[in-house]
């Protein structure tokens, strides 16, 4: 018999002996035991959502900004025609819902002015003349803001936009008279890591 064969046989015997000891001796061991089941722990996912923004969520006012002087008294904007120097301020109450202990989300606002596809030269000129900017998001003077469940407890986040018709020079914008443009804005809410600074 060769050495390798003897080794195989020896290993097989040892394996068999070990198995017999384990199987035959289990019933002979005695130890204390107890079991319990915890209450079910419900786990739900966090979420974020932007609701539909309706016309009722927009409050617009019109005033005029003159360098070196206080702004004129703002009046409700009801479609009045804008002239150089005018500032149209729109406050949008953006419906926001955020849930989750560690949920943080960045609200980005992207306003834009567009003339109709069949724009007249005055439309295009007006779109070119007007400036639009995000003045504040959630009360902070910035174009974006990091939101948390507590910061949007009220269900809405106020966003302030301003459309400015610059004074320009005399007669600079005469060719924009009668022009019409649309102000649009898109809002994007994106989750960010909980530790991300605003």
């Amino acid at each position: 018999m060769r050495g390798s064969t003897r080794a195989l046989i020896g290993a097989a015997l040892a394996l068999g002996l070990g198995g017999a000891l384990l199987a035959g001796g289990a019933g002979t061991l005695a130890s204390w035991t107890d079991t319990a089941t915890s209450e079910p722990q419900a786990i739900s996912s966090g979420s974020l959502d932007l609701g539909t923004i309706g016309t009722g969520d927009l409050q617009a006012s019109l005033f005029q900004r003159v360098a070196g002087a206080p702004d004129t008294l703002a009046v409700p904007y009801t479609g009045q025609a804008l002239v150089p120097g005018d500032v149209l301020r729109i406050v949008v109450d953006v419906p926001v819902r955020i849930t989750g202990q560690n949920m943080r989300a960045r609200l980005d606002v992207a306003p834009s002015l567009t003339a109709a596809s069949s724009a007249t030269p005055a439309d295009a000129r007006l779109a070119d003349a007007l400036d639009v900017a995000v003045v504040s998001v959630g009360g902070a003077a910035a174009a974006t803001s990091i939101l948390s469940p507590t910061s949007v407890a009220g269900g809405t986040v106020p966003v302030t936009l301003e459309v400015t018709f610059p004074w320009g020079t005399t007669s600079q914008y005469n060719d924009a008279v009668g022009g019409r443009v649309d102000l649009d804005a898109s809002y994007t809410l994106t989750q960010v890591p909980a530790g991300e600074a605003g």
């Binding site: 966090g46 609701g51 419906p95 989300a105 007006l126 007007l130 914008y173 019409r180 809410l189």
Partner: peptide, 19 residues
């Protein structure tokens, strides 16, 4: 990819007046 949501606000028409 994080969670994400988008929304659009109703368009506001602006016109230029003259003198």
């Amino acid at each position: 990819a994080y969670l994400n949501a988008t929304a659009e606000q109703p368009a506001q028409t602006i016109s230029a007046g003259g003198l």
